[in-house]
């Protein structure tokens, strides 16, 4: 079942096409990631989908509800973390939680969420005084208070240190395990690779690909790189003839063979070949292409990877 149906969504700021004719469906219970560099149009997409921005054309349905027509109904069932949220000056953690808790019909007791995310000792602190990681935890708590079926997370982990980021990853997986659907954006490739059941790549407001990570990598047609070392400098012919790949390079300086192949089983086939020929070799290894490579190939652009 599709929880979100986006069709032909477009949004321009004056002349700039921030979102250009995007269509997507997000399935019940998946973590869906929207991936793209800064300025790609992720935030604009999320804000259009959640009715915070008016879009120019297209349509968005959440749980079958037309976002343009019945926005209030949508706000009862979604939870949202915005990329940059600042809360009121001098508001305390407990107060902002009360404020949100009070808003919903069937809220999760906020104290449960506070405990689950380990912020009990911060209940009486000013939100301003929280660390980056604590503030992101708070924004997740606020997104969850309404017990939403669907959670939107916009660059939740940007600016967090590696440890806090890993905490967040565990939390996001936890959301899916509770049966919630997650729509998240990120510009970290490895985050999307690790977390998301399906992703879409977006660049300059346009959708480039949408699938699971492995399919996107193979779609991009990027070849893996197999290397091994052997003093036998006469293997090129045999490798090409065996059908593993026609793209084989031998570097005589360090006795290294490099084979480029898009085929999934290429490393096993190489090993079998070498063994069957009784060749003396070492350090057989494969460097598989990553989402990052795929992104660069697909966009001809670049995407920050940390």
């Amino acid at each position: 079942m599709n929880v979100i149906e986006i069709s032909n969504l477009s949004k321009s700021y004056k002349k700039l096409k921030a979102v250009n004719n995007i269509s997507l469906s997000i399935k019940q219970g998946e973590i869906f990631g929207m991936l793209g560099p800064n300025g790609a149009g992720k935030t604009t997409t999320i804000e259009c989908v959640t009715g915070l921005k008016d879009y120019d054309s297209g349509s968005v349905h959440i749980h079958g509800i037309d976002v343009k027509k019945e926005l209030q109904k949508v706000y009862e069932i979604i939870g949202l973390q915005l990329q940059e949220t600042i809360y009121q000056d001098k508001i305390k953690v407990s107060e902002i939680c009360q404020l949100f808790h009070n808003a919903y019909k069937n809220p999760i007791p906020y104290i449960d969420l506070i405990q689950r995310f380990g912020l009990e000792f911060k209940l009486n602190s000013y939100v301003q005084k929280l660390s980056g990681g604590q503030r992101q935890k708070l924004s997740i708590i606020l997104a969850l208070i309404g017990n939403p079926k669907l959670v939107f997370l916009d660059e939740l982990t940007t600016g967090l240190d590696p440890e806090a980021r890993r905490d967040m990853w565990a939390i996001i997986k936890g959301l899916r395990d509770e049966g919630r659907t997650v729509f998240m954006t990120t510009h970290y490739m490895e985050e999307a690779e690790y977390l998301c059941d399906r992703i879409c790549l977006i660049n300059n407001g346009e959708l480039i690909a949408c699938d699971n990570v492995q399919s996107i990598i193979s779609q991009s047609g990027i070849e893996s790189e197999i290397t091994f070392i052997s003093k036998n400098n006469d293997l090129k012919q045999s490798i090409v003839e065996s059908g593993i790949s026609s793209n084989v390079i031998y570097n005589a300086l360090n006795n290294t063979y490099t084979i480029y192949s898009a085929e999934d089983k290429c490393i096993a086939r190489t090993a079998l070949l070498l063994e069957s020929m009784g060749i003396d070799y070492s350090k057989l290894s494969i460097k598989r292409s990553t989402l990052d490579d795929a992104f660069i190939k697909l966009t001809g652009g670049n995407c920050k990877n940390e």
Binding site: G51, L52, Q72, Y75, E76, L82, Y87, A103, G146
Partner: peptide, 17 residues
């Protein structure tokens, strides 16, 4: 004006408040 500038109003828009 501050609430608007800092998107506090916007954050509340996305809730039943």
């Amino acid at each position: 004006a501050q609430y608007r500038e800092r998107k506090i109003l916007k954050r509340f828009k996305a809730t039943p408040i």
